[in-house]
Design a protein around this nucleic acid. Sequence first.
DNA 1: CCGCTGTGCAACTCTAGGGTTGCACTCGAA
DNA 2: TTCGAGTGCAACCCTAGAGTTGCACAGCGG
Lengths: 127, 127
Amino acid sequence: MTDGRDGGGVSVDEILAALADPTRRRLLDLLAAHGEATATTLAEGLPVSRQAVVKHLAVLDTAGLVTGGRVGREVRYAVRPAALDATARWMAALATDWDRRLDKIKRLAEAAEREERNDDRTPEGNA
Amino acid sequence: MTDGRDGGGVSVDEILAALADPTRRRLLDLLAAHGEATATTLAEGLPVSRQAVVKHLAVLDTAGLVTGGRVGREVRYAVRPAALDATARWMAALATDWDRRLDKIKRLAEAAEREERNDDRTPEGNA
DNA sequence: CCGCTGTGCAACTCTAGGGTTGCACTCGAA
DNA sequence: TTCGAGTGCAACCCTAGAGTTGCACAGCGG
């Protein structure tokens, strides 16, 4: 539960790193909206150069968040929900795990507190 | 659905950025395991200095992923599942959204294809 | 009161990576 | 075959931020 890789062998690390960049998220938005687009087209809708977009797409591709397909002389990219979905599940599971742990710790703390009160009432001289 | 802030007013951007760093995730792991710990304690279990840990904890705190509480002269930190959970839901919703979009696009593409075949059979001279 | 431990603050280094520009290459259309 | 649009590659800035060190400050225990 600490690391985690989805079915495609893409680490959560890569996906989170990819998602951390605002431009990249914007890119994903555009792609989700258009369904399919080239780096050149996408760059027109962003305040960055085509090359920057290409780099970002490469990162997203490595993370499994998009796929690139060649059509003639252009490269069409499309969004790929699987990786995102997998990461979402991973996070949800992690959150649940934390909840369980916190609950357990809380219980232990309360138990320890009761123990201490017991010690107060029964000093060291007992059997 | 593009941005998103949880109930506490913490942007998804901050949470993703916080989660993007491996050391920070490691830190969250340790915290989830111990339930509560100080920066100094946590630093002992990591290959970085206490100061580095303090900085990371500050980031995680801003992102709403941990809380700091002062006990005597030390500061105990604890994990905070709510923000993580909210982000997980956000991601899941986004993934679903992408799925819907892809589906719709696919349908449209197929419809357009049929349209085109129609045009082939009925050249412009119709009416 | 004094010393020890744990925090807080500040300045500084250094690298990853986001962004750019320039140019060479390829493929499709006229 | 030639022109142009689209892509790929490489070298290059520049800043954010991860990490460090040094020191001053605060609080608990003796």
